[in-house]
Design a protein around this nucleic acid. Structure first.
Length: 662
RNA sequence: GGCUACGUAGCUCAGUUGGUAAGAGCACAGCACUCAUAAUGCUGGGGUCGUUGGUUCAAGUCCAACCGUAGCUACCA
């Protein structure tokens, strides 16, 4: 019996579980369920990746403490994953005492072995927020093409890549102030020391060839030191003997695998060291997406090696998910969260569909709605569930739901059983697409068998009772074997089938032993078809109208474009401060005869009482936007860079409310 | 620009070391059946295997170039 520890990449504490997380969590869960079903000792741990600037800022924005924020998200993540049948031994958090002590211990080992050094790094810094800025938190004008408001790493318009310091007129997205260049000491892990080890490790069966080819690229180019520190303020663990430095989230994230397992070991009889110390007869498997190959196949094994731990047995890498051929998009409704999916569709349909598409390659996987509906309905309902559905009635009516005492065609049953070793190999490789194909081929055979023996004909004829019972008995047994093979993929469906079969939980070796002379349970509908309507609703519910995708704005617009904007003169009826908002005023506007509530970020320049009665210009056909304090039904035009320099636009005397501005 | 993958029927994909493999499922058409959630069975149409060259007695299968897709990475700093 093998002893296996399995992890999936840690979801970040900064958003809900969506189709992308589910691809990996379900892939991993299927692999783990297979290992357990086969009889291996297998543990699956995961956690939320809690640290970093992003969680800190999200919590701040939500107005809660960072601890509350990550706790809340962890609860949500656990609930969502459970809905999809993903069963972890433990779903922990990287913000834990176990992780802190493990991280400190590993860091000390790295330090003592001479793999840590320091160097000064110049980085953009937001003085008003006292925060160093990662590239994505700086926006400005592209140095190559001049496009406005581009992120700090590359230009969305012309595709140029550059450093954040190259941006023209850079702004911090946190404060809209101009960042300054500031130097700070960073701690580095000297990855290059491990180049020889990694070259050996990456080509010793730990990853597939396509992945190791990719890794060769980095190895050939020369490994760069890995920055493992961040300056305060930062949500994470403090680096000992360093002033105001924290471990970069990417150091303690993979250690979070260990911490989650350690936390679980404390309550179980499993020995932590058996899975992390050198030379133990256990396996360690990581499931990841192709975007984080370098972390898991270079940095992480080097850290483990350097700190005297075992290295991973295998890294399983999957591709990205697309929806109907495109990246998930909030505005198109294809950015689908787990909870939303669960509202409209059976979570097991996703497990099945993903399984049908997942191979061991790093190819991207497309969630095609048309294909999804066809696959689920045709395979699971039309073929699989149809088998017992075609036979249960005959057994219930004529034989008190009792199976015959023998198999009339043992060869057919054996044919199903003989596929076992093939299926085992495919599960082990992670080729569930092939598993599904093989199993459905057998399901076709089962249906062919039923058609050839036509139980409905036998039922009409007198004296054919024995044949009728035998035919149905064999068909039910074939179905039962298919259930065994699919159990890791659709555990709920199989559980309902187990209730029908009425003989306890199916085990992997049940495909060798037919169920005979046995009373079945009542047959109930095992699964519902998927309707296109459900998909439509799901997409509709996933559409985020409040934050449309940022379209790269062309510099020049046509007159038609301008005419889309309905500018109107409006009279301010009332203005008041917004409780809890630093910069907002809530304005009651009269636009023609219509009253509107509009939020405007002008508090730093105007007092509410000074605004009442004056005229302003408002964008009248702006899509209403939900804000934390209410819905804003338009936008008031103003000039100026911000702060106290905001100047409202107003019409000359004579203009009346409701007039169009052109 | 460099690199790693991928490109086979309308869709999703199989095609093992080059040699009766141009294949499966879905979709489509016809027929049969009516036990079953308009499910099932049988039959059939459909592809110059991204393009162009090359190696070979023989190439989706090897090589080169090009095109397309996804991703990684990039001169200067």
């Amino acid at each position: 019996m093998r002893r296996i520890l399995v992890t999936a990449a840690l979801p970040y504490s900064n958003g809900s579980i969506h189709l992308g997380h589910l691809l990996e969590q379900i892939q991993t869960d299927i692999w783990v369920r297979y290992q357990k079903l086969y009889g291996n000792e297998c543990y699956y741990v995961c956690a939320d990746d809690a640290h970093g600037t992003a969680t800190m800022l999200s919590a701040e924005e939500a107005g809660v403490s960072t601890e509350d924020w990550i706790d809340r998200l962890r609860e949500e993540h656990i609930k969502d994953l459970k809905l999809f049948g993903v069963e972890h031994e433990n779903y922990y958090s990287t913000h834990s005492s176990e992780n802190e002590s493990l991280t400190l211990g590993i860091y000390k080992k790295l330090f003592d072995s001479g793999a840590i050094f320091t160097d000064d790094v110049s980085q953009l810094y937001d003085s008003s927020k006292e925060l160093f800025l990662a590239d994505r938190y700086v926006r400005g004008k592209c140095p190559r093409c001049g496009a406005e408001d581009q992120p700090g790493d590359n230009c969305d318009v012309c595709g140029a890549t550059y450093a954040a310091t190259d941006l023209i007129d850079p702004r911090s997205v946190h404060s809209d102030t101009q960042p300054v260049l500031k130097s700070s000491t960073h701690y580095f892990f000297d990855l290059a020391q491990f180049a020889d080890f990694l070259r050996e490790w990456t080509t010793s069966g730990t990853v597939r060839d396509d992945v190791s080819n990719k890794l060769d690229e980095w190895l050939d180019a020369g490994l760069k030191p890995w920055d493992i520190s961040r300056d305060a303020p930062y949500f994470g663990f403090r680096i000992p003997d360093a002033s105001n430095k924290y471990f970069y989230v990417w150091l303690d994230a993979p250690i979070g695998y260990m911490a989650s397992f350690m936390n679980w070991c404390e309550e179980s009889c499993v020995e932590f060291d058996d899975f992390w110390q050198l030379h133990r007869a256990t396996e360690l498997h990581h499931f990841i997406g192709k975007d984080i190959i370098n972390f898991h196949a270079l940095f992480w094994p080097a850290v483990l090696k350097c700190s005297g731990h075992r290295t991973p047995t295998r890294i399983h890498v999957h591709g990205f998910i697309t929806v109907d051929g495109e990246k998930m998009s909030k505005s198109k409704g294809t950015f689908i969260n787990a909870a939303t999916y669960g509202e409209f569709l059976d979570p097991e349909t996703l497990r099945y569909y993903y399984a049908a598409r997942l191979t061991p390659t790093i190819n991207d996987i497309d969630f095609s709605f048309a294909d999804f509906v066809a696959r689920v309905n045709s395979d699971l309902v039309g073929k699989l569930v149809n088998i017992p559905s075609r036979c249960a009635n005959f057994l219930a009516r004529g034989f008190d739901s009792r199976l015959a005492t023998e198999l009339s065609e043992p060869a057919l049953f054996d044919e199903f059983a003989q596929l076992k070793t093939t299926i085992e190999r495919l599960y082990e490789l992670g080729d569930t697409a092939q598993v599904v194909r093989e199993v459905m081929l057998l399901a076709d055979k089962a249906n062919q068998y039923i058609a050839a023996n036509a139980p409905w004909e036998l039922a009409k004829q007198g004296g054919k009772e024995r044949e009728l019972q035998n035919t149905c008995t064999l068909a039910i047994n074939l179905f039962r074997s298919l259930c065994v093979y699919l159990k890791p993929i659709v555990p709920q469906l199989v559980q309902r089938s187990e209730e029908f079969l009425n003989s306890g939980q199916l085990g992997w070796n049940d495909v060798d032993k037919p169920l005979l002379d046995h009373k079945l349970g009542e047959f109930k509908r095992l699964m519902n078809r998927v309707e296109q309507k459900q998909i439509d609703k799901l997409i509709e519910a996933s559409k985020d109208t409040s934050t449309p995708e940022p379209d790269p704005m062309p510099d020049i617009i046509s007159i038609e474009d301008f005419q889309k904007i309905d500018l109107r003169v409006a009279k301010v009826l009332d203005a008041k401060l917004v409780e809890g908002a630093d910069s907002l005023l809530e304005l009651k506007l009269l636009v023609g005869t219509e009253e509107r509530s509009v939020f405007a970020g002008i508090r730093s320049a105007y007092k509410p009482e000074d605004l009442v009665g004056r005229d302003v210009v408002v964008v009248a056909n702006l899509k209403p936007r939900k804000m934390r304090f209410g819905t804003s039904e338009g936008m008031v035009l103003a000039a100026g860079p911000g702060g106290s320099d905001i100047f409202l636009v107003s019409p000359d005397k004579g203009a009346e409310t409701g007039m169009e501005v052109r």
